[in-house]
Design a protein around this nucleic acid. Structure first.
Length: 271
DNA sequence: CAGTCGCCCTGCGTGC
DNA sequence: TGCACGCAGGGCGACT
């Protein structure tokens, strides 16, 4: 489900309500996620204060003085802040009860997500240590991307979805960024000129920044921490639009499969 | 090392 | 109404 804009929207939505708040109790209803939820999470966090809610790639970090909760939303995960008296929903797997009387609930029907505890630097955790650059940081630029692309023959779409190169670009925004940059999704990364790489970097940054501004993309079940949808779906130019007319040239948007994921593109505008 | 593939899991829309 | 099937916003580990 969530790519960088949706995770960032979630972060920004819950952070003001969690920062400085004490966690009175952690309840785990389903331990079997991508990795088992350890009981250490509940004991370590009890009566600790959340100092900040940060994001690295698609990972959310709830930081306390004694350690960090690492959360990944996988394909279908979401976080919601509700009054603790509100009834649990199906697939609410973990809840964090706050001294404020609110409850932060982690819901994930497909259970591809993750809720972990670490007492160490979360950025050194094996799942995070090898992550690539943040796409909205200044270090993510044409020099960086072009240099790596030069030695990769993989399709550019798979390339920009590789979290070890750049984080947060998932299936929606990969298609959208390539359309904006006018690059064909199956083109080998090493066969893209430096100038077009520069356009691609700009396209990734702009599409993600705009999506964040719109509160993310709600296809079916993404909601921010307060239960509101995102509005970027209206701005999608190719994703999910197979057979429709390209907004630029009018030819039919095509759908193909790459690495078991659907890709949409305009065969005329993208080369 | 780079690249491809299968798989983890539930829910929903489609077509019979 | 029910069932089978394909597909879904992600990412890991096993394999070539």
């Amino acid at each position: 489900m969530p790519e960088l804009p949706e995770v960032e929207t979630t972060r920004a939505g819950i952070e003001p309500h969690l920062r400085g708040q004490c966690v009175t109790e952690v309840r785990v209803y389903q331990r079997q996620l991508r990795q088992p939820v350890t009981m250490g999470l509940a004991t370590a966090l009890k009566n600790k204060e959340i100092c900040s809610v940060e994001r690295r790639g698609k990972y959310l970090l709830l930081k306390s003085a004694s350690g960090t909760v690492i959360i990944h939303l996988g394909m279908s995960g979401s976080l919601r802040l509700v009054d603790k008296e509100v009834a649990l929903e199906k697939h609410d797997h973990v809840e964090f009860l706050m001294a404020s009387g609110q409850s932060l609930r982690y819901r994930d029907p497909r259970r591809f997500g993750l809720v972990l505890w670490t007492a160490k630097d979360p950025l050194q955790h094996p799942l995070l240590a090898k992550l690539g650059l943040e796409p909205l940081d200044d270090e993510f630029d044409v020099d960086y991307l072009y240099k790596i692309a030069q030695q990769r023959r993989v399709a550019i779409k798979s390339f920009i979805m590789n979290g070890q190169i750049v984080v947060g670009v998932g299936n929606i925004y990969a298609s959208e960024a390539l359309f904006r940059a006018g690059i064909h999704p199956t083109r080998a990364a090493k066969r893209i000129s430096r100038a077009r790489c520069e356009r691609l970097v700009g396209a990734i940054k702009s599409v993600l920044a705009e999506a964040i501004k719109q509160g993310g993309t709600t296809l079916r079940d993404f909601y921010n921490g307060a239960g509101e949808p995102g509005y970027f779906k209206q701005r999608l130019q190719v994703y999910g639009r197979g057979g429709e007319a390209c907004v630029r040239c009018g030819s039919a948007i095509r759908q193909i499969v790459q690495g078991q994921r659907s890709t949409w593109y305009c065969g005329r505008c993208q080369r």
